[in-house]
Simulated scan of single mutants.
Amino acid sequence: MKRTLKRVTSVLLLLLCTGILCACGSRNNTSGLTDEEAENWENQTVNFVSELAQMSDEDLDSLLQYGDFYESAVTAWKDNREVLGAYQTTGETTCKLDGGILTVTSDMQFEKKAATVTLTINQEENTPTYLAMEVQRTMGEKMKEAGSNTVLGILVVFVVLIFLSFLIYLFKYINLWAMKQEQKKSGQVQQVPAAVPQAGVQEEDMTDDEELIAVIAAAVAAAEQTSTDSFVVRSVKKVHRNNWKRA
């Protein structure tokens, strides 16, 4: 019973904050805001967010039935509450009216991190329309994220280049595999042509030089009626002319 009462009370408080926001809007016009009006908007925005941060999951889910604004507020808080932690204090808050749309921007400090909360209100309908939360990051966190993105991009480029190089290297094996598959389909086996023996060169029957010289020397000695010791046959040349016809 106590749990149900607490839940109803939390929801009613949050709805009351929203009602006060709308009521404050009735005192504003599209020409601008006075310092007092801007301060009222800023205070009500801070109260709304602080109440939202203290609600349980069941209470937050019960707000979804009240429209798009509550859906955006609940979603923004659930998406960031693990990173932010519990609400603590509020820093600089600004209020700007432009073309019937009132925008309240507040820098809030939570238990773990700071966040910028932006609330927009439709001035003509006197109703809040959207709430957003953006976690503030330090310069070190931004540099760390930028460095991680750079390293990741370089790694992706190198991985793609290595993959392309490997793919190009495999092309020759892919071509060989494709040729083998074509040969299997066609039933033809590629054969290396055997070397065709060249026409045999007729080897001339060479007579032993020493025997040929001896025979010629003997014939010359008989013709000159002398011995083979009186001359020396140094070379033998074949003459194609018919010397017998000349004689």
Score class of each variant (00 low, 15 high):
138 T>Q: 00
109 Q>K: 12
149 N>D: 10
135 V>H: 08
156 V>K: 10
123 Q>D: 08
141 E>V: 02
149 N>V: 08
153 G>E: 04
163 F>E: 11
123 Q>C: 10
124 E>K: 11
116 T>D: 05
158 F>W: 09
131 L>W: 01
140 G>C: 05
169 Y>S: 01
117 V>F: 02
166 F>P: 05
118 T>C: 01
109 Q>F: 15
145 E>V: 04
170 L>C: 15
153 G>S: 13
148 S>W: 14
129 T>C: 05
170 L>I: 08
126 N>P: 01
169 Y>C: 00
151 V>G: 07
139 M>H: 14
164 L>G: 06
126 N>E: 13
144 K>Q: 13
118 T>H: 00
125 E>C: 15
175 N>T: 09
115 A>C: 07
127 T>D: 11
125 E>V: 15
156 V>P: 06
113 K>C: 02
132 A>W: 03
143 M>Q: 13
129 T>R: 02
146 A>R: 06
145 E>G: 04
109 Q>M: 15
106 S>G: 03
109 Q>S: 04
150 T>K: 12
158 F>H: 14
132 A>H: 05
128 P>N: 06
146 A>S: 05
175 N>Y: 15
140 G>L: 09
108 M>S: 04
140 G>P: 10
149 N>E: 12
173 Y>G: 06
166 F>R: 09
148 S>R: 10
134 E>K: 12
141 E>D: 06
169 Y>R: 00
128 P>F: 03
176 L>I: 09
140 G>Q: 09
176 L>E: 11
168 I>H: 01
